[in-house]
Design a protein around this nucleic acid. Structure first.
Lengths: 329, 329
DNA sequence: TTGAAAGCGGTACCAT
DNA sequence: ATGGTACCGCTTTCAA
């Protein structure tokens, strides 16, 4: 391995001077600079990042903590984060925690001992105190898809409530009279918000009935499937369904399909997220688009601001959602 | 930040001894050990991984280079790798390269200066010489879904040829007389193999016609859509389609749907990969299951063996594929 | 404008 | 069994 001392020797300058030209810091004469650059070329010298980190206190690496990269919401988040990271020479550590407290705690420890410059966390279950500790230690953190009202931890979320409202409004506009909702788990911030948005829209438009909500303890395809069946068993006049996310919407679609109920003729269906799968189903699913990529991008940019010691003016960034009309409605 | 010297002072032992108990190396008296462990607890000391890496030459981090985490094949790969990594205290750097040579070259450099212990590469385009260089520098590398016959670079692939054969055989068993293939780009190892498997199966079973193949220059939904339309325009008697992967199968399904051709009644369809989406479509898509998780797992285990200096006996690991029967056939 | 040298937080060799 | 200390490769202060 070629070190800074090799460059120093070959160029006839001291390591300090070499360091200066590498980092473009301090004064270096044109002659010295040239000699050093020549030596760097010749030796194909690449500064050792580890040594740099140890001395300089920065690793140019951030940690991304998510429940599971296999959940279709997260690849795009990860991609966005990685895109802005790599753009400026940062690198991203991928951490899956399955919403498991122990794994989360463990990863936070690991990331700290690895001296990452900051952490982006998307977790439904994580111990609030855990994150608060980081925040109070002035460790750069940004939270996704969740808000801690008890503190000023920077958070990026999208307008879930408004999204639900738009979804229900759309179903009404399409002629639906009896609209049901398949709600995700209430521990999850986004589920709660979507539920509230649904309630608000229903109250304003007189289609609210408590029996028209199925409460699920998860948000995967199977939950949508079960929820849809549950709703259909209770009330056969349902003509519109708003599912808490696309995965559940797909589950609902499967249940409807199995019963021979036609979408969108008999029942119209709207999902949430606009994950890639919603465009892939047949019929494709109308959904509320979260700007997933944008969420990731903003999160990373916010994190970088914090890392650079800039004051973050907006602690909560709320991003706009949008109705994507497709075949299911 | 608490350092080893703080522990040394508080415990009354030297840093060398503290280091010994941290690493369970060398002899330490019971008394010393106890005092040190007490001090570690009290100070909540965590060894600094960066310092450790600088001195010890290992970072316990590996790089994962893939085209795009948003491609549904890779989240599961990433998950598998991260699972085995985290299990033994390793950490994974996520690198998306979009099959772009410059990005690949750049990431390989970055990963080397970050001193990762090894790299797992899944790339269709990457310069063979690039990887060869790493390999010859004795830098631990494992390649996914591709084989370099010119060298002994460890590779994990699945039995693509056999998979195609099984797919075609299945279509024949279902009564298909005229089977078409939508082939992915030939630069991609897996596409070539699947194509060859298709040809072999057709020749053995007398349903081979060159006109029944659509050659696509990509493998996304749109390519399947276009390919299907192309085939249908050429020959209206097709009653079975084998798509080069699930995304293309979905595209084909969409095209068929649009033309009012019923699947599986009029045309039966088989995909490849068994990505999660294949189970989600309506009708769900029969496919050849690649053991995606297993591929990732093996790749990481192989990499770890290499890192630990063990001899790798099998340079090419070929994993079995399996027919997953679903509604589309 | 330059260089010597003291860290950064560990590891591990060599004495004792 | 233990401790002193010279590294690992780079940054940064301080003096020249």
């Amino acid at each position: 391995m070629v070190t800074i001392r090799d460059v120093s020797k070959l160029s006839g300058c001291s390591v300090a001077t070499v360091s200066r030209v590498i980092n473009k810091s301090g004064y270096v004469s044109a002659d010295a600079k040239q000699a050093i650059q020549k030596a760097i070329k010749e030796l194909n010298y690449k500064p050792n990042t580890i040594a740099r980190s140890l001395s300089g206190k920065k690793t140019y690496t951030v940690g991304l903590i998510i429940p599971d990269i296999m959940n279709p919401f997260f690849p795009e988040i990860a991609r966005a984060i990685e895109d802005v990271a790599s753009e400026i020479g940062y690198t991203v550590l991928l951490c899956n925690t399955d919403d498991n407290l122990q794994k989360e705690k463990n990863y936070i420890d690991v990331l700290q001992t690895k001296q990452v410059d900051g952490i982006i966390i998307a977790s439904y279950t994580i111990d609030e105190q855990q994150i608060l500790n980081l925040y109070q230690d002035r460790f750069p953190v940004v939270v996704l898809d969740r808000i801690f009202h008890s503190s000023n931890i920077p958070a990026i979320v999208s307008k879930n409530r408004e999204g639900s409202y738009i979804a229900v409004k759309h179903l009404i506009d399409q002629g639906c009279k009896k609209i049901a909702h398949i709600a995700g788990p209430f521990e999850v911030y986004a589920s709660r918000e979507r539920f509230v948005g649904f309630e608000e829209a229903c109250k304003k438009n007189t289609c609210y009935l408590p029996s028209l909500i199925s409460y699920q303890n998860g948000f995967h395809v199977s939950h949508g499937f079960d929820g849809m069946n549950e709703l259909l068993d209770k009330d056969s006049e349902i003509d519109g369904v708003f599912a808490g996310n696309d995965l559940m919407a797909l589950g609902a679609l499967k249940a409807l399909n199995k019963r021979g109920i036609s979408v969108p003729k008999d029942i119209k269906l709207v999902g949430f997220d606009n994950t890639s799968l919603s465009a892939m189903t047949i019929p494709s699913i109308t959904t509320i688009k979260q700007p997933i990529y944008e969420i990731g991008k903003r999160a990373m940019n916010t994190l970088l601001s914090i890392i650079d010691g800039k004051k973050v003016e907006k602690y909560v960034t709320e991003l706009d959602v949008e109705l994507i009309k497709r075949e299911s409605s």
